[in-house]
Design a binder for these strands. Sequence first.
DNA 1: CGCTGATATCAGCATGGAGTGATCTTCTCT
DNA 2: AGAGAAGATCACTCCATGCTGATATCAGCG
Lengths: 92, 92
Amino acid sequence: MRALADPLRLQIVSLLAHETLCTTHLIAETGARQTNLSNHLRVLREAGVVETEPCGRYTYYRLRPEVLESLSEKLSALAATARSSADVRRPC
Amino acid sequence: MRALADPLRLQIVSLLAHETLCTTHLIAETGARQTNLSNHLRVLREAGVVETEPCGRYTYYRLRPEVLESLSEKLSALAATARSSADVRRPC
DNA sequence: CGCTGATATCAGCATGGAGTGATCTTCTCT
DNA sequence: AGAGAAGATCACTCCATGCTGATATCAGCG
C-alpha cells in the first residue's frame, strides 16, 4: 500500500501498466529528475511491484500484475466483509 | 490510497470491516491515544472511507464498502492492463 | 445547573520520506 | 583505452504528517 500511496509512484505504475519502459522513458514521461525517479523505482522494486530487466546499458522496468491483483483482492475481501457485517454493531 | 497507507488507519479499517464501533472501542482495540485516533478517523472521514453516526454522546464509525470496492477495481484494472500489454516494450 | 465522560480541535514537536546535486559504476562506441 | 550516456548510490535539506498534551465542545446524569 505505502509503495503505491505516492503520486509519482502511482504515475509510474500507470505508465508501466501500458508498456515496459526504461528509466529514460520514465524521465521523459514524468518530467522528474533522474535521481528522484531512481529512488522511487527502488521503493517499487523493494515492494515487489516492479521488476527490472537489464538490457545493455538500459534498464527496463516491468510491472508485476500479481502484486496489484493480490492487493485488489485484499481490498475486495475487506469490502465484502464490511458489507456482510453491515448491521453488526458493538454496544457501548 | 494515501488514507489507507498508514498502518494504524489500516488497522482501524480492518476492525470496522467486522463491526461498527465507536471511538471508545477503537481506543481499546488499538491501544492508541484518543487524540491520535481522532486525527486518523478524520483522515478516513475526509477520504470518504468511513462515515459517522452520532448516537447520544457516542460516535459510531462505519466503513463505506463502495470506496474499498472502487479502489479494488481500479487496481484490478491496472493489473489487467499490465497483463494484456505484457509484451509491449518501447524501444530506446 | 454543575459534573463527568466522549469526542473533536488546536498548537507544538519530531520523524520519515521526498527532492536534489554530486559522485561512482557500467555499458557502448570509436 | 578513452569518452560519453544510463542509472544507482550517497549525503543533505526540507516539508508533510504522525504523535502528544492541553483545551474546547457537547451529551447525559445527578
